[in-house]
Amino acid sequence: MNATPVVASASGLELSPADRLIRMPDVEAMTGLARPTVYKRLKDDPTFPKPVPLSNSKSRGAPVGWVFAEVQAWVRQRIALREVAA
């Protein structure tokens, strides 16, 4: 049986990695990239995960999150590319 990993939240809800949103400090920690580099990747790298708006605001600085599973997959892809290049 292949169970989907579940993450417990502070509210007691259980979310799968595909449903869990993370914020910038988590993206920085998972990718090893600094905040400005994350935004540069968003602009220049079509494979980098796109943020999810957390409000209806379109202004600069409006809150965003990233899908945990998408960031995780991007990191795994980078690791796989390293192994291919070696």
Rank of each mutant, 00 (worst) to 15 (best):
Leu33Tyr: 07
Leu54Glu: 07
Asn56Asp: 15
Ile22Gln: 06
Ser11Lys: 01
Ile22Asp: 09
Leu15Ile: 08
Lys58Phe: 03
Pro36Ala: 04
Asp44Thr: 13
Ser55Phe: 08
Met24Gly: 03
Trp66Cys: 01
Asp44Lys: 12
Gly61Ser: 01
Ser55Tyr: 03
Ala73Cys: 03
Gly32Glu: 01
Ala29Lys: 12
Pro25Leu: 02
Arg82Glu: 15
Ser59Pro: 03
Leu13Arg: 14
Met24Val: 09
Phe68Leu: 13
Thr37Ile: 00
Ala10His: 11
Gln72Glu: 15
Pro63Ser: 01
Met1Leu: 14
Ser59Cys: 09
Ala85Trp: 03
Leu81Ala: 13
Thr47Ile: 04
Met1Asp: 13
Ala18Pro: 05
Thr37Met: 10
Val6Lys: 11
Leu81Asp: 15
Ala8Thr: 14
Val6Pro: 03
Arg41Met: 11
Val84Thr: 13
Arg78Asn: 07
Ala86Glu: 14
Ile79Val: 14
Glu14Ser: 11
Leu81Trp: 11
Val7Ser: 04
Val6Asp: 08
Asp45Asn: 12
Met1Trp: 12
Ile79Gln: 15
Val7Lys: 10
Arg82Gln: 15
Glu14Ile: 01
Arg78Tyr: 05
Lys50Gln: 14
Phe48Arg: 06
Pro25Ser: 08
Val7Arg: 10
Ile79Ala: 14
Val52Asp: 01
Leu21Val: 00
Phe48Gln: 03
Ala69Asn: 06
Lys58Gly: 06
Pro17Thr: 02
Val64Ile: 15
Val71Gly: 06
Val27Pro: 07
Lys50Met: 07
Asn56Arg: 14
Asn2Pro: 12
Ala3Glu: 14
Leu13Glu: 15
Ala3Trp: 09
Val64Asn: 05
Ser11Gly: 12
Thr47Asn: 11
Thr31Cys: 04
Ala3Gly: 02
Ala18Met: 06
Gly12Pro: 07
Asn2Gly: 06
Pro53Val: 00
Asn2Lys: 05
Glu14Val: 11
Phe68Ala: 09
Leu15Val: 09
Glu28Arg: 10
Arg23Met: 10
Asp19Gly: 13
Ala73Leu: 09
Ala62Thr: 02
Val75Lys: 00
Ala85Thr: 08
Trp74Thr: 00
Val84Asn: 05
Thr31His: 05
Pro17Lys: 02
Pro51Met: 06
Ala80Asn: 10
Gly65Tyr: 06
Trp66Ser: 04
Asp45Gly: 00
Ala73Val: 00
Ser59Gln: 14
Glu83Val: 05
Asn56Ile: 08
Val71Thr: 07
Val52Cys: 00
Arg60Ala: 13
Ala10Glu: 15
Ser9Asp: 13
Ile79Asp: 12
Ser57Pro: 04
Ser11Tyr: 09
Ser57Lys: 10
Val67Ile: 15
Phe68Pro: 02
Met24Phe: 02
Gly65Asn: 03
Arg41Ala: 13
Gln72Pro: 01
Arg60Asn: 12
Leu42Glu: 05
Met24Glu: 00
Arg20Phe: 12
Leu42Gly: 00
Pro5Leu: 03
Leu13Ala: 15
Leu21Met: 09
Ser55Thr: 12
Arg23Cys: 01
Ala29Arg: 15
